[in-house]
Design a protein around this nucleic acid. Structure first.
Lengths: 293, 293
DNA sequence: CGTGTCATTGAGCGAAATCAATTGCGGTGG
DNA sequence: CCACCGCAATTGATTTCGCTCAATGACACG
């Protein structure tokens, strides 16, 4: 495995030493990490102009290993979580035990917000990799909001951001085709990786096809087929969990795959090209098919 | 039109006299209405224990007529809206002008929250009936949050509630069949009407089939057909915009094929019926098909 | 009484789900 | 080390749900 391509962070040595490796931010103390307010704001990408770096307030970190649950549905709520490193999923579980993936929190994301209203978490959070989370007790948050005007505003802002994200999700599920959803999902992941300083062109998926499908409102087979189709066309490369983004712009603007008839044509063209030793990804007349109305 | 069944509020005389009719709460002043903090909390269904009723702070009301836009996408954000009476829709508009309905705010609902993050509204709000809205300037809100601990908590709570609602929406779009979506939509509306003190059994839809379809991720034809089907089965009565709820429990538990399994049972039931040469649309035991997960 | 908007209903088709078979990979234990 | 197992992923065959296209009906409005 290429350690350069994967945003694996300290997972490279395979799940063993969490507390031993050094980390970018936070103060290390006998295996526990603490962050001050400034660091917390940085992780959340919040403008912390008037925040004193000498603030004595500290925020505890907690580590979770792959597969562990951070909180479950119905569990009494009292703290929010900020992802310092690692990857997670949040899921809703219906009355029959079916999981519905709601989000894939990663570095800088906040989760647990759904617990504020009813004082119990409305969703379940599971670590998809080893994780380092910053605990943000809700009490502390409100106290902080009253002390620092900036911080209060920032918290509202972050919650608003979450809401907008959900809205975009609803819009996507309601209006886009399967291919468009998968395409946007990939672009989205790519951009988030870029934000985190990793490669936006080559990365490993942290979730299964099933989880992706659940997130996008599709079956795992459809996700798999769509990825394969994108691969054939040269938009991406796929090898199991490893994804290479080849044509971000096409993915971003993709609405629907060409009709199966012209698709056959395309494949044919591709074959003839391969036979002629031509370069693959030229395919002139599509890749950014737009909806007409 | 039966004025008793419809939560029409001052709309009966058809869009003419807004400022003339009297309203339940608020202080009337030459055509403008003002609410104090207590009233505002009441509308939001917030426990306002420690809120002084003698609070001098007043919140302005604004009236909108059917079809008017409250705010548009990209417009600078500075105030939130609380629905005092009337019905609205919030929509997202994609790059090709297609509308995607996000919510149908009604009495007690808060909207405009999506503007906090980017300082510009991310969605557009349109009045589906004549509306009376309470303005809640964001500045005022934060100030209030610092003054009244209770209020700050309440605002977080309301935003959390919105987020949970969106999550439920995502879950529905991702996992439920067309019939289940429509069924839940009806139940949801019914309950909201009940909360507002109107009949939960008989009401008028304020939105078109197209808008319902957009909201549920369906086409207007599918919505229409589904309503007709529910009507034939006796779950509801439909006559244009007028809906009568006949079997809330069946609607509430109506499902379709979530992920896997459960299908065997369905097919078996179908086959046994077919074998018994049963009449088509009598189908006694459907209308509340449950997934066995 | 036309005209436009919204709703209903039907026919046909296509995208995605379901069902099913196979392959690839990582771990485990003989 | 390899055989075996379980899980994930790929791929194909078939079904079906919901969309598209289209015609018609109901109602409000000028």
């Amino acid at each position: 495995m290429l350690s350069t391509q994967a945003p694996d962070v300290r997972t490279d040595s395979t799940t063993t030493a969490l507390h031993t490796s050094s980390v970018e931010a936070g103060w290390q103390r006998q295996g526990k990490l603490w962050s001050n307010l400034k660091e917390l704001c940085d992780v959340l990408r919040i403008t912390s102009a008037a925040i004193h770096t000498d603030e004595e307030l500290l925020f505890q970190h907690v580590q979770f290993k792959t597969g562990q649950r951070i909180h479950t549905i119905g569990q009494p709520f009292d703290t929010l979580y900020i992802v310092h490193s690692g990857f997670l999923k949040t899921v809703l579980i219906d009355e029959f035990g079916n999981e519905q993936v709601l989000s894939f929190p990663m570095k800088g994301d906040l989760f647990g917000v759904d617990g504020i209203h009813t004082k119990r978490y409305a969703s379940e959070a599971v670590a998809l990799s080893n994780c380092d989370l910053i605990l943000l007790p809700f009490k502390k948050l409100t106290a902080l909001g009253r002390a620092h005007v900036e911080f209060e505003h920032a918290m509202y802002s972050v919650m608003s951001r979450e809401l907008v994200r959900e809205q975009a999700m609803v819009s996507m599920l309601g209006a886009l085709s399967a291919e468009a959803r998968v395409a946007r999902f990939l672009v989205n992941l790519s951009e988030r990786y870029a934000d985190m300083g990793y490669s936006s062109k080559l990365f490993n998926l942290r979730m299964t096809r099933h989880e992706i499908g659940s997130y996008l409102g599709l079956t795992l087979e459809t996700v798999s087929r769509t990825l394969s189709a994108f691969n054939e066309i040269g938009l991406i490369t796929v090898d199991q969990r490893s994804i290479g983004i080849k044509d971000p712009e096409a993915l971003r603007t993709l609405r629907r795959l060409p009709p199966s008839s012209s698709r056959a044509k395309q494949v044919a063209a591709k074959k003839s090209k391969a036979a002629a030793q031509q370069n693959d990804q030229s395919d002139p007349d599509w890749g950014a098919q737009l909806a007409s109305a």
